[in-house]
Nucleic acid binder design. Structure first.
Lengths: 246, 246
DNA sequence: GAGTGGTCTAGACCACCGC
DNA sequence: CGGTGGTCTAGACCACTCT
C-alpha cells in the first residue's frame, strides 16, 4: 500500500491541537499576550469550538493559559513557587506576613476535619479565615479549625467580631507548645466561596493542603488551605532558600 | 414585585447535578458499586449527555468516581495516603520497597530539568525509571535524572541494559553524602508514556513532585515523580507515623 | 452594545472491554 | 458481539467585562 503510516493509533484531535498550540505558545507568544478568541481559533484549526475548548482546558490545567470570561485567553506566566511549611515547625502566626487575616467565627467543622480533631459531632470550634496573597494576586484561602479546648484563654463570653476574633485565636495558639505537624496535599475543586476569594470559577482545580498541628498530646488545630492549582507550585524547601522565581 | 427569588444567580445545571450525584454517592452507593451508564443517567436527570459528563468529570477529579472505557463508572474508594519524603533525607535507595525499578538509560533531559542540574544543553545523563505500586495498583511513575559527574564510578564503558543499569546508578548514588533535598508539588497532566504506566488516559490529572538532591555543593540528581491525582493524597509526615488509612 | 468565555443541546461515530 | 466511556460536531443561548 506504500503508506508510511505510523504504528500509533490516530491521536484524538484535541490532543494534537494541544501539542500544536503548546508549541506556538513557546515560540510565537509572549507572557500576557492575548490569543485569538475561541471561535476564530476553532475556525482556523478546522474543528468545532467544543474540541478546541478541550485542548484549551488542559493547557489551562497545566498553567500555560489563563482564560477569563468577558476578557479572553492570555498566555500565563510560569507558576509561582509558594513555600508551604518550613523546616522549623511553627504556628500560623499573627505576624505571618504571607497570610492576611480575613475573619474569625465559630462553626461546626466538616466531618473530615472532625475526624482529625476528635471533637464532638456537632461541636462548634473556632474558625479563622485567612487569605494568602503573592505577587499581587490571591493564591490561597485557608480555614483554620481550632477546638475551644485548645485555646482555653478564650471564654465564650469575649466574642469580638470578625478579624479581631481571629487574631485573638491566633495569639492564644502561639502560647501553646507545638509538638509537631503533619501535612497532606491532594487535588480538589474549588468550593463556591473559595472560588470567589481566589477569583476563579467554582470547580476550578485547587491543591488542598491539610495540616494538623499537634500540641498537648493531641491535635490542637487543623488547617485546610486551598491553593490555586493553575498559578501555584507548592515548595517544601528543606534548604531554607525560598525562591519565588519567575 | 413579591418574588421570593434568592439573591443567587441560577446555578449551572452541571454543578447542581454534581451536588445531587455527590449526595447520592454518600447515601445510596457502596465503594466499588457501578453506576448506571451515562446515557441512562443523562435521561434520568433530563439533561444532555455532555452536561452529565461535565458533572462526572469533576467528581472524578475529586476522586469520588472512577470511569473506565468499556467498563463503566464506579464509586471510588477514598484516596490512599502515600508518603512523600520523610524527615530524614535519603537517596532513592535500591532497597526502597515502595518503588519498583523499571529501566535505566542515558538520555538528554528536558529543559526544565537541565536548568536544575546545570548540565550542558544537549548533554545526556543517566535516567532511571521507577514505578511506585501501592495497594496493588500503580500510583506513581518516576524519572530520576543523574548527571554522569554525580556517579563517576560508572564509566560509559560498563553499560548494562535496563534495570541492571538503573540499579548500578542507584548504588553509586548511595555512596554519595547527601547534603539536603528540596521538593515541589504542582498539578500537571499525564504524558502519554506516564499515562500508560499509570493505567490512565493521556492528559489525566497528576501531581508532579520534583525533588532536587544536593551533594558535593551542587544538585547531584533530580527526580520527577508523577502521582495519580485521582487516587492519591500525598503525605508529608513529620511525625513518622505512616498511615495508609482508608 | 459588542465581544468574550461558559453552559447546553441532540445528535454521531470511535476505541475499548468483557462475554 | 453488545455495551461502555471517549471524541466530535454545529449549532444555540447565557453571564460577564469592557468601552
Amino acid at each position: 500500500m506504500g503508506t508510511t503510516q505510523l504504528e500509533t493509533v490516530p491521536e484524538p484531535k484535541y490532543r494534537h491541537l494541544k501539542t500544536v498550540i503548546s508549541e506556538a505558545l513557546d515560540s510565537e507568544f509572549a507572557v500576557g499576550e492575548i490569543l485569538p478568541n475561541e471561535r476564530d481559533l476553532a475556525a482556523r484549526f478546522g474543528v468545532a469550538r467544543a474540541t478546541l475548548r478541550q485542548a484549551l482546558e488542559q493547557l489551562e490545567l497545566e498553567g500555560r493559559l489563563q482564560r477569563r470570561r468577558g476578557v479572553g485567553t492570555t498566555v500565563a506566566p510560569p507558576r509561582m513557587g509558594v513555600s508551604v511549611g518550613s523546616t522549623a515547625h511553627n504556628w500560623p502566626g499573627v505576624s505571618d506576613t504571607a497570610w492576611e487575616l480575613a475573619d474569625g467565627t465559630r462553626e461546626v467543622p466538616p466531618a473530615s476535619v472532625v475526624r482529625h480533631l476528635g471533637t464532638g459531632q456537632d461541636e462548634p470550634v473556632h474558625v479563622v479565615r485567612r487569605l494568602r496573597v503573592s505577587g499581587g494576586q490571591p493564591v490561597a484561602a485557608e480555614l483554620l479549625y481550632v477546638p475551644a479546648a485548645s485555646v482555653p484563654g478564650l471564654a465564650a463570653a469575649d466574642a469580638p467580631t470578625g478579624t479581631a476574633r481571629g487574631a485573638a485565636v491566633l495569639r492564644e495558639l502561639e502560647s501553646l507548645g507545638l509538638e509537631g505537624e503533619d501535612r497532606a496535599v491532594e487535588l480538589g475543586s474549588a468550593r463556591s466561596d473559595d472560588a470567589k476569594q481566589l477569583d476563579r470559577l467554582p470547580g476550578a482545580p485547587v491543591l488542598v493542603v491539610t495540616t494538623r498541628f499537634f500540641a498537648g498530646g493531641g491535635t490542637a488545630a487543623v488547617s485546610v488551605a486551598t491553593y490555586r492549582a493553575d498559578t501555584c507550585r507548592l515548595t517544601f524547601g528543606d534548604t531554607g532558600d525560598v525562591e519565588v522565581h519567575s
